[in-house]
């Protein structure tokens, strides 16, 4: 235990908690209905027609919610946590990965302790940026392409445009699902397995 053991930091402002709650619920709904559509045989879990409607509505809501996140991070200090310093980034990433695979079992202290200026460790920062600024925008944009197939590009260099859009949407969906599994698991690595989830409810982070 180090000296900032009982410190409580207010890291998650209310708006990010609300955004995150909505986002998590919508993502779960989208994954379940998305899989039902993808693997309809003819109906898996959710009836095909229901799955389509629910998926469409949830997708539009997610897009609106994403805009809130985007604007919020653009104009509040929370956005600072998403600015990735390029220099030495890879090195810091490796240090963090080493901690999660080896150090943590030797009861080492986290290499990048959480501070008000740096609430994400390098690995968190990388995955959050990649997810929130690459994967989610891609899935939202391709989702709109599929929602209005008449508008979607007809062909791109000989390949069917609808097909490419669909392929992108499904592939990115897979990676977001993968992110979510890993994300939720990593959230159990806190002071206690539940403490990070509590943080996302009351806003306060409890340090190791």
């Amino acid at each position: 235990m180090n000296n900032h053991s009982s410190e409580r930091l207010y890291l998650y402002p209310l708006w990010i908690r609300i955004w995150h709650m909505i986002n998590a619920v919508l993502c779960l709904i989208l994954i379940i209905t998305g899989l039902s559509i993808q693997f309809s045989n003819p109906s898996v879990v959710v009836k095909f027609k229901t799955a389509i409607s629910v998926h469409n509505i949830a997708g539009v809501l997610l897009a609106i919610n994403y805009i809130a996140f985007f604007i919020g991070n653009l104009f509040t200090t929370n956005g600072h946590h998403y600015i990735m310093p390029v220099r030495g980034f890879f090195k810091r990433l490796i240090i963090q990965i080493r901690y999660y695979t080896i150090g943590i079992f030797k009861k080492e202290n986290p290499p990048f302790p959480i501070t008000p200026d740096q609430k994400f460790n390098p690995l968190q920062q990388f995955t959050y940026v990649a997810t929130m600024y690459l994967l989610v925008p891609l899935i939202v944009l391709s989702g709109f392409g599929l929602l209005y197939p008449e508008m979607t590009l007809k062909s791109l260099l000989g390949a069917s445009g609808l097909e490419l859009t669909d392929f992108l949407h499904v592939t990115v969906g897979f990676f977001i699902t993968l992110f979510m599994c890993i994300h939720i698991y990593f959230c159990t690595i806190g002071k206690t397995p539940a403490s990070n989830f509590k943080s996302m409810i009351n806003g306060f982070h409890e340090s190791h």
């Binding site: 991070n73 990735m84 310093p85 390029v86 940026v129 925008p137």
Partner: peptide
């Protein structure tokens, strides 16, 4: 040399 994600 900081990646500003909004640009992405």
């Amino acid at each position: 040399a900081n990646v500003r994600p909004a640009w992405i």
